[in-house]
Design a protein around this nucleic acid. Structure first.
Ligand SMILES: [Mn+2]
Ligand SMILES: [Mn+2]
Ligand SMILES: [Zn+2]
Ligand SMILES: [Zn+2]
Lengths: 158, 158
DNA sequence: AGGTTGATCAACAACGATTGTTGATCAGCA
DNA sequence: TGCTGATCAACAATCGTTGTTGATCAACCT
């Protein structure tokens, strides 16, 4: 359940790179370390703004990009228009709700998932595998107009 | 190896929906049915422009969106800035080259890939599963400065 | 403690991808 | 042939993101 490195560790990393540790950056560190929701730059901005109203969106983008460049954050693109930032450094996959746009983590590994050698895609050198499950999250399912339970017929792949 | 439906079939579908079958649309149909490269709107525009120089980018977007809305085309977002259109209607997965940006199809199914019930993501209703392998395509690997063969050490997940 | 130097700010402009709009012209199809 | 939607050019506008500028500030090293 480890997320982004602690505020202290990030502080160290910034210092080591000759980057100053400013209150803005610390505030962003804090916002990230207490977040499990794959925030956008805007939403980090909103969170940080509440305790530091003068921070600029520009600074938020800047710091998020710094963190991503340092590998302390990864970026996600699920087709919702804006980039999501993922403070969870562990290898994992994602469940994207088509209804509310939420993104949940799935900590599972699928050992069978690999590119078959010599086939259609022979010679492709894999460095990373991302699985995205699309569908409807539990809370959106719960909020639906009541209807007969229909447990069958979910097609794989859309 | 079936790709987008034939030009004739798409023609029928458009007529059935009360949409007119114009030379522009037919040209776009043709460009798609002979494409295996997950083109962007711009690249479809470029292809069609060569045989129909007066077509507008606006019309290309319009038709691609129509096709996507009809389910005759799917859209892909791999974080390269622009939407890729996929004329391949069969369920499949993708290999994205981080070097040249190419996207190859992988026609394989991974029966083990499913959201574990009752765990971290209990209650999520899956409607589609997309697997993206990131790495380096065969031709980019081939074009590298010669070095010792290193066949080990590909980490899964980045 | 003080000076150097990078960080931040406001206030913009600019970008690329995509969509909206308008009015005029054109052409598919019944 | 006529109705009506499609297309066109030529824009403007949107959204997310990055660039720029000059002024101010403050983290950090000595
Ligand atoms: Mn995640
Ligand atoms: Mn494909
Ligand atoms: Zn939901
Ligand atoms: Zn490549």
């Amino acid at each position: 359940m480890a997320v982004v490195k602690s505020v202290d560790v990030l502080t160290e990393q910034f210092r080591a790179k000759g980057l100053k540790v400013t209150p803005q950056r610390q505030s962003i560190f804090r916002a990230l370390s207490s977040s499990r929701v794959h925030p956008t730059a805007e939403s980090v901005y909103a969170a940080v703004s509440s305790e530091m109203p003068t921070i600029s969106l520009r600074t938020v983008y800047q710091t998020l990009n710094d963190l991503a460049a340092m590998g302390e954050l990864s970026t996600l693109d699920v087709g919702t228009g804006s980039t999501r930032f993922d403070p969870n450094l562990e290898p994992h996959h994602h469940l994207v709700c088509d209804e509310c746009g939420s993104i949940e983590d799935l900590h599972a590994d699928f050992p069978g998932v690999a590119v078959p050698t010599g086939g259609e895609a022979g010679g492709f050198e894999v460095t990373g595998t991302e699985i995205v499950f699309r569908g409807c999250c539990a809370s959106c399912v719960a909020g639906r107009p009541s209807q007969q339970h229909n447990t069958g017929g979910a097609r794989a792949h859309g």
